[in-house]
Write a protein that binds this DNA or RNA. Structure first.
Lengths: 204, 204
DNA sequence: CTTTTATATGAACATTCGTTCAGTTAGGCT
DNA sequence: AGCCTAACTGAACGAATGTTCATATAAAAG
């Protein structure tokens, strides 16, 4: 009754997600066929439908999973900074730095998922699009809240918090277009360079 | 012999490009069929092949046209700033501001072309990809040259010019994800907000 | 008017697509 | 041993894909 041990492989489900993620990121959702995914997994196309009702649901599930992970990881990260009480002005700057470094680190660890999450929005059905958009907005609001508190405390100069939020995220996302691990710069250095720019762009 | 006046419409060629651009931007290259493009133009699919050898060439032509326009427009814009001789330190800042405002303005005027130009790179054949990449690098070098001169003159603080170039362009590109003409902010205000952030992010 | 030529049609082509499903396989349970 | 059930195959489905081409059309050229 309960799945104690899979009959054949026991890991086909996860592997489908892994291979689909890779192929969607590489060639785009519309350009990848179910047969390509099945072949990468080492299975026939029909077998995929034991794990997903259809192709669209597979895409949505990957995107939703990524966004959920992102939010969970940030909330965990942020908790550490809000726990320790200290000077509010220093704390909001520390939170902004934490967000900057977290965003870069998290996204560089999952280039394929990130690529898909903002590249394949237009291939989602209307309902699925709304759901993902909502998760994205939740993440943006996390940064925007930091900026607004920084303005309130007088430690940040931000003419328009909404625009600044989007500008910062766009800038940080840019790191994915060029960073390759093992390259000229270490992850730590990259984080530092971007944090320097973010910090200064909002200096009072 | 020479095409004096088109037999039927005389504007089918341009209209194919217009509609293909719109559809590619909206649904993605792979998700748009030649029949959809033809239908949008008001013609049968076979007629498209009087204007393009195949679908791939149509995509490449659109991207190449966009990048060429971009470079030509910037070089014309920059010429105005290099002509008038004045204080070099003030001039390099003026050039940076000009680039920032130009980039925002130019890109907001062609959202579809911009979208395609960096979204459909993976759908280009190898040769076509190389060609577009080269044009893109040429544009990036224009900004990088400004930053390097700014560093040389001591008016800009840029730890890594290559990264800063990509970071600025990524940030400016972000404007396209949210700006809608007729919205809360005018184009002039948007330019100002972004220029403020760019300038400060590189302050000495 | 006749000929030429650019332009468009619409049917046809070989493939490929997402998806379904009856049948096979093989391990777990009683 | 015999049954059960989840996993997978392999063939099949109708629909859609990019592209070709013989044919029709109508305006321009002579």
């Amino acid at each position: 009754m309960a799945r104690t041990q899979g009959s054949h492989s026991d890991i086909t489900g996860p592997r489908i997600r892994t291979e689909a993620l890779r192929l969607f990121a590489q060639h785009g959702y519309a350009a990848v066929s179910m047969r390509q995914i099945a072949s990468a997994v080492g299975v026939q196309a029909g077998a995929l439908y034991n794990y997903t009702p259809d192709k669209q649901s597979l895409l949505f599930s990957l995107m939703e999973g990524h966004m959920t992970e992102l939010l969970a990881a940030w909330h965990e990260q942020e908790a550490a900074y809000t726990a320790e009480a200290s000077d509010p002005k220093a704390k909001v700057l520390a939170r902004l730095e934490a967000f900057t470094r977290f965003h870069i680190r998290f996204h560089l660890e999952r280039p394929d998922a990130v690529f898909i999450a903002y590249m394949e929005l237009r291939n989602l059905s209307e309902d699925n699009f709304t759901a993902i958009e909502s998760l994205r907005r939740e993440y943006e609001n996390a940064l925007q809240a930091i900026l607004k508190e920084g303005v309130r405390l007088g430690v940040l100069h931000v003419p328009d918090p909404k625009i600044a939020t989007l500008a910062v995220i766009a800038m940080l996302n840019g790191v994915m277009t060029w960073y390759r691990s093992g390259g000229r710069l270490s992850l730590e250095e990259v984080e530092g360079i971007y944090w320097d720019m973010v910090k200064k762009s909002m200096q009072v």
